[in-house]
Write a protein that binds this DNA or RNA. Structure first.
Length: 369
DNA sequence: TCAATTTGACCAAA
DNA sequence: TTTGGTCAAATTGA
């Protein structure tokens, strides 16, 4: 590699770093942001060319490969409205709002759509698994997955399972904490209960199966699978399936969440095209989600210590607090704190948002009546 | 005592 | 037949 190429790489890194440092200041200057991104992309494209690679294949992947903080990126060409809709309904936006605030989090991109009609909505990167591709992709659309409990129903024939190809799902990649307990994938704004773990053929790491903590109470069908990437154990691939209905239930807690501080920090016009950057569009419609979303979709982040870790703290993917496995996400915790606990008390956030136990008892009493 | 996790087994889709 | 997804008993911890 010649000196000019090295200098180019350094220049690209510097530009990226500058962008990172000035991200918040530039948040309300989409044009400036876009030109800055373009310059970075151009720089690395030239590097790729010099290195004998097709610049079209490079994209931001080259940036990632250099171990620089990865920029959030959306490769949604179509179905952005679906992404928005799904995120609104699922509350995933909350996680995205964290993503956009945290350079620590690896880049995410893509969208999910449940629409089986129309153009193929797959957003998987050409690079496929690993660090070359975008960290979020749509895989397939279709009906909601169904699972009939054969034991409860009393008949095994009533039990139906559908594989991935049938179920509407969305896969994202999130970085594992580099410090503390790296076994635990980052908080995503929901409470999950682990119901299984399985070794997957061809994967070094087992896949964890989680469902919404409120599945029984609110018949919430939301599920997720968490798996480490073979070639990068610091990245979790999280597959979400089913939308959260727990916040729509008439019996669901109705206490609205505190407004996330971050949303006020960088208001970005919702007219920003989603293909440019995930940050802007998400930030643009996030407030809608928060205003509409129920408590479950806006669960206060338990990481960082505000939560007691008891009760509804479900699954290592959310809080990891059970059995004293309190996990510290230095940056994420700070973000969560800033977003949801700005000036708030230290009371148990889960009790505040999910008075599940009380709700549970009340419902049982209702049934008795 | 209650709730969450672990884990082996079961079952249906591929 | 293989494999992924789920169940539920056992275990663990607050």
């Amino acid at each position: 590699m010649d000196d000019a190429t090295i200098n180019l790489i350094l220049r690209g890194c510097r530009l990226a770093r500058e962008l990172e440092n000035n991200l918040r200041n530039m948040a309300d200057q989409p044009n400036h942001l876009a030109s800055s991104c373009e310059e970075i992309i151009r720089t690395f494209s030239v590097i790729r060319e010099r290195l004998g690679r097709n610049p079209l294949d490079a994209g931001l992947g080259g940036y990632r490969e250099m171990q620089e903080p990865r920029q959030a990126e959306v490769q949604a060409s179509s179905g952005s409205s679906n992404l928005e809709g799904w995120l609104k309904s699922s509350g995933y936006a909350q996680a995205m709002s964290i993503l956009q605030q945290a350079p620590y989090w690896a880049g995410m991109s893509g969208a999910r759509t449940g629409n089986t009609e129309g153009p193929e909505a797959t957003l998987e990167a050409p690079g496929g698994v690993g660090m070359e591709g975008p960290s979020l992709r749509t895989v397939s659309g279709g009906e909601e997955m169904q699972a009939v409990d054969r034991r409860k129903s009393g008949s095994s024939s009533e039990r139906t399972r559908r594989r991935n190809s049938d179920a509407e799902k969305m896969t994202i990649r999130v970085p594992a904490p580099r410090m503390g307990n790296t076994e635990i994938p980052p908080e995503d704004g929901y409470t999950w209960r682990k119901y299984g773990q399985k070794e997957i053929l061809g994967s070094k790491f087992p896949r964890g199966y989680y469902r919404c903590t409120h599945q029984k109470l609110y018949h919430c069908p939301a599920k997720k699978q968490v798996q480490r990437l073979d070639n990068d154990p610091f990245i979790f691939e999280v597959t979400y399936r089913g939308d959260h209905t727990c916040h729509m239930s008439s019996t669901a807690p109705s206490i609205p969440p505190p407004p996330p501080a971050s949303l006020e920090m960088a208001p970005i016009p919702s007219t920003q095209p989603i293909s440019a950057s995930v940050s802007a569009p998400l930030a643009g419609w996030l407030p809608v989600d928060f205003s509409m979303g129920g408590p479950s979709g806006s669960r206060s982040m338990a990481v960082g210590g505000s939560g007691s870790g008891s009760g509804s703290e479900a699954g290592p993917s959310t809080s990891g607090s059970r059995r004293g496995k309190e996990v510290e996400y230095p940056l994420v915790a700070d973000l969560a704190d800033a977003m949801f606990n700005s000036g708030s008390s230290s009371t148990n956030s889960m009790d505040f948002i999910f008075p599940a136990s009380r709700e549970d008892k009340r419902e049982e009493e209702d049934k008795k009546d």
